[in-house]
Amino acid sequence: MSGKTINSAILLLIIGNALALISDVFIKFLEEGAPVFQYALMRCVITLLVLLPFWRQINTSKPFEGAGLHFVRGHVHLVGIICMVYALIALPLATANAVFYVAPILVMVLSVIFFGERLTRLSLAAVISGFAGILVILRPVDFSWAALGALGSAAALAINAVLVRKLPRQQSTAHKLFLNYLMILPLCLALALWEGAVWSNAVFISAVGSSVFILAYNVCVLLAYKHVDANQVTSAEYTGLIWAVIIGWLFFAEVPDLWFLAGSAMIVAPLLMIGLQQRRIRLRATNHELGDTRYHAAPAVAETDAVKQSADARKM
């Protein structure tokens, strides 16, 4: 699977989202009361070790360019990891992932606040429907710290996706990830020492498994978006919710109820409609360009900021 065609790119995203869900499963197998800060430290160290083979992609002439923003993003990311662990341990797998999918909606809101972007009618409908969908899934009567954790994780994903626009454009994904985890290493160590938990093999296995499978997910995403325009295949990302339902049912006997199905539809359906709308706009633009190739060469498909955000901040 090269990802050079739309079908192969979609297949890569479907496989990638399945791998991301396996990463969540490693976390969900942890027992309630597991040392979360120890997990965060292990996840940080393991990810840095996994990134070492990619050291050639780090710009050694400017290794700490944008350090202040990397520091902020890293610590937002750390909060997101901790929130995600609490959410996945306590909530059904599909419920937690449905709430995680509100991150793109939060990105829209934050883009309006910080960049003055305007929401289309469809985007505004997606925001309203998405937040209503959260209420339907979680329901105020069932609200808990785990639910707040899922929302906190989605908020962290959204904040990092917005802040990535301000990072140096020439930095590779490996460089960004390396600085991200390097910046939070001291706090992770301090929190783990403060937690004072004894070494846990279960936490170590969870950290290794989740790190490896998230890396595999990121590789699939990069390959999928390398040759194909993002808006042509990005809807395949939402198959992650289907995988969450299937894996939750097989491994944890979790059967989604009507509240979950209705709320998930309210979150995902408007996002899919936006993706289809962008695809139609792109196709019209492409047809216009092809009609003008007699005088101008058709532009090549490039890696967009949305691609970088997806690979850099889609999952914790």
Rank of each mutant, 00 (worst) to 15 (best):
V45L: 09
A236P: 03
Y225S: 06
M1Y: 15
A297L: 10
A298D: 06
M1L: 11
L52P: 00
F251A: 08
L177H: 10
S111T: 06
S264K: 09
V50Q: 13
N59A: 11
G209I: 14
W199A: 12
T304H: 14
R282E: 11
Y225I: 06
H288Q: 13
V136Q: 07
L110N: 07
G130W: 07
W243R: 08
V208T: 10
P270C: 06
R279W: 05
K28Q: 06
V102M: 03
N59L: 07
Y238I: 02
L124D: 12
E237A: 09
A158Y: 01
V109N: 03
R282Y: 10
M273G: 06
L191K: 05
P270W: 11
L177E: 11
R165D: 11
A158P: 03
Y217K: 03
A302C: 11
L167Y: 07
G33F: 00
H77E: 08
V45K: 13
Q277I: 02
I46R: 15
M108D: 04
A302G: 10
R118V: 13
S153K: 00
Y217N: 11
G196P: 00
V107K: 09
L49P: 02
G263A: 03
N59F: 04
N218P: 00
M316Y: 12
A253M: 09
E31L: 15
I89R: 02
G152F: 10
A20F: 15
A298N: 06
S200N: 05
V76D: 04
H296Y: 14
